[in-house]
Design a protein around this nucleic acid. Sequence first.
DNA 1: GGTAAAGTGGGGAAAAGTGGAGAATACTCC
DNA 2: GGAGTATTCTCCACTTTTCCCCACTTTACC
Lengths: 143, 143
Amino acid sequence: MFLGSYEHAIDEKGRLAIPARFRADLAGGMVLTRGFDRCLLIFPLPYWSDLTRRVSALSLVDEDARMLRRLLFASASEQEMDRQGRILLPQNLREAGGLTDQALLVGLDAFIEVWAPDRWREVQQRLETQGPHFDEQMRKLGI
Amino acid sequence: MFLGSYEHAIDEKGRLAIPARFRADLAGGMVLTRGFDRCLLIFPLPYWSDLTRRVSALSLVDEDARMLRRLLFASASEQEMDRQGRILLPQNLREAGGLTDQALLVGLDAFIEVWAPDRWREVQQRLETQGPHFDEQMRKLGI
DNA sequence: GGTAAAGTGGGGAAAAGTGGAGAATACTCC
DNA sequence: GGAGTATTCTCCACTTTTCCCCACTTTACC
């Protein structure tokens, strides 16, 4: 269960420390990949496997299936923590997420989002200004 | 589990290094063949066996099945890595994939695609512009 | 305020990627 | 059929990059 936001430095080698609170749940391995709205996603391995099982089972021949496979897997990266609890952010993913020297790790219960800090602040502002708008959305979701 | 993209050189002898992360899963042997969209495919032997069983079970009469058979089997080549972790790309396959001096190996979970780098970049651009199309796909799959 | 844990930076060792040389095989031409 | 030539394959060695560990600094918690 990942909760809360943590801002950590990305060092010159592209390493990022996982918040101590998150480490136990990622000890079994994790997959790092591109998310929506230019953020990155970190999935614990069991969650990832469950997510991708259906995609891998799709036809080799079907064009949509081929493209979907490429979208999901081509920029993903399996990572393990070093003894200091850090992972390596591959350069292509750092670029995809617009990350330079700082990263914001946001726990979203089952997985983690990684944001460039200023980009995250924009999202938060949107949350505040559009707050009322979400009432309707959430009702639709049954919450 | 093959994940991520790696660009490697093809040397004058037509040899291509397999990314270190992929080697363990290919140690039991692999089959190299033509894929769709002018890329090449590398299958681990167990996956290949399963695939051939399914394709061979298809009707002799069905035209699509005939074409699929020709694509997969006619230019297939069983390969083993040398001690440096490289395989030889036969010339006919290099031509089929439009490969010259660089190759992009893309891990797609159960198998690997091999692309000419500029051709792969086109595919990536298409992926980005067609984003919304895939939202629907993923929703159907429960992702 | 002290202690312990977390976060950060740097250095060294190991492995990955690449080019090339030598040996073995096949091939051709005399 | 044999010798010379070309080609393929395997192994070796160098260079670069990556990974891992150690140590210091900072923060949090008791």
